[in-house]
Design a protein around this nucleic acid. Sequence first.
DNA 1: CCGCCAATGAGGTACGTGCCTCATGACCTT
DNA 2: AAGGTCATGAGGCACGTACCTCATTGGCGG
Lengths: 347, 347
Amino acid sequence: MNEIAGRRRVTVHDVARVAGVSLATVDRVLNGRPGVRAATVEKVETAIAEIGFHRDLSASLLARARDIGVTFIIPDGSNAFMASLAEAIERWTAPALTDRVHTQILRVKALDGAALARALDGLDAKTCDCAVIVAGEDPAVLAAVDAASRRDIAVLTLVSDLPGSQRRHFIGIDNVAAGRTAASLLGRFLPQGGKVALIAGSLHLRDHSDRLAGFHAVLAAEFPAIAVVGPLEGHDEASQTESIVAALLAEHPDLAGLYNLGAGNTGLVKALDSSGQAGAIRVIAHELTAATRQGLVGGAIDVVLDQNPDGEIRQAIAAARGLALGGNGLSGNAPIEIGIFLRDNLR
Amino acid sequence: MNEIAGRRRVTVHDVARVAGVSLATVDRVLNGRPGVRAATVEKVETAIAEIGFHRDLSASLLARARDIGVTFIIPDGSNAFMASLAEAIERWTAPALTDRVHTQILRVKALDGAALARALDGLDAKTCDCAVIVAGEDPAVLAAVDAASRRDIAVLTLVSDLPGSQRRHFIGIDNVAAGRTAASLLGRFLPQGGKVALIAGSLHLRDHSDRLAGFHAVLAAEFPAIAVVGPLEGHDEASQTESIVAALLAEHPDLAGLYNLGAGNTGLVKALDSSGQAGAIRVIAHELTAATRQGLVGGAIDVVLDQNPDGEIRQAIAAARGLALGGNGLSGNAPIEIGIFLRDNLR
DNA sequence: CCGCCAATGAGGTACGTGCCTCATGACCTT
DNA sequence: AAGGTCATGAGGCACGTACCTCATTGGCGG
């Protein structure tokens, strides 16, 4: 009888009865269909609030007889973090988890706004209710996001936000806080002060510049004894990062710390290991990947700050589901936490 | 027509057709009902695997016409972490989130095994499918867990495990890793070595002793220059912890670090603040609560290791749902991560 | 007063699974 | 061979919502 402790579930029938209207009208109001006077809408909404009606998600999904289509558009290339994002999507797409949600992954050339825009334009609202994109700030992308919105495809931004667009939500970490945390840790690691080098992918990437800003702010306020070298740009490339780090170590034999706020960590670890300085310098990097794991275990890297791709994907799917069902997609979105990993709490 | 890209959903009807049996038999196999020959079970399972059938969760929940009842039994008292657990339960019980899951919270006297056992014994399988408990190791509790299992109430342990019982899963962090992480951070904070004091709630609590073991292991292996004072037991009480810390600070004016692996952080912060040493000593504590937040912001505490109560509750609900639906409840359970918080990444 | 249109009611089917009853065989026991 | 048990089939109703068609009402302008 669908009850717990003797209380029957509140259904649309109850709403109709209390509001003094027919089932059809309740249905029209609930699903935003036209042809209902404002006064009647009011009556129904009052009744809903009064008896505490909540749409039964299971029944709703069943009746729609249609899956929710979510398309992830992820940058392609050698970036290990993006690969781990894609893996997280696979992982959270196990049938038992994504109830009636059907996911699809598109890989497009990294940092190529036009390609991303084309991919967005190619989405068909019939098979795709929601697009999740990782995008840099680019006018073409912005226009494509707004066009998709007009076609009734909800867009979410992942990792890096696109303010000013019609994107429904941003899912990612607070990169300013990440930079602050790196500075706070390095400051405590070097109580005597010293020289710390900074490496970024590109300062045109919003997440990188945010991290840099946070780092500088904490250093200036709390750890004046620490001097900064850089930032140098490694363009998220392993080989470039490697030569930059090698040059840094050669030029500054007294280097006490290093913060790589971008990618290219394979090169970072390689340069540290071959310099023989690994372990003597406190090193912080971003994103838990094969390279940074190896760095942690081997002692070249002290701390890794992580975005928690699994959490991001889970939230993206939950938000997509919420949006497709007519909600605002915000329910239950604890903000993504910055993961902090040492060798000792590697998962 | 319930399709995406032209592919119809695979239903029980398809399974029956492919297996060459009736719907009723498929149903018996799917729901583990008796009266089916092993050979027939085999046929059905082969068909399921062959055509990739997955039970439609929405339809299943709907057809059961019954909510899933989950009862949380949480220790009562002044422990702030337990209070935050209870809050997390409320938070994740918003109607839109817990689809067809009905939660209930029972508070019982902390560290009172008999009271917990009574609460468990009082659960009725008609309204409760799953119990989630925070328990110490106690024979009475163990017996009550097994009895509940026999009444078809699945039991999950939260925060602290109960090995040897019929509990279906443990949801919580790896406390040995937490202790290792604390040692690893303190070691890096004190490159010159020094004296570090340890405070525990009670060494009879499994989570506390696990943390202690991890801490000692890393210190011995990697930071021999650090000397340990304690552990002293504060019994998770603010007042006791306060006097212990005050005594420590008085007796060891050269104290360089402090790790409280239990509760009672209100006392810890108070003692540090009134000693005038706050900020000069590197301090690590557990659980993000009002007291530890204040410690972080004020500078008395450097790092807080956190269990992430929201994540634990979410997983507990997901697991309960999975169990009630006949699965093993394990799907999608990324292990709970140890949250690491500084002043700079406070959420 | 007639006809038009917007607003609403009435009632049905569908979604996929759970669970129930009843009937029908096949096989076993004595 | 009769009676019993066990495995299976056949069919139907229920869950709560979505969406459809068709009828009915009331108010309006001409």
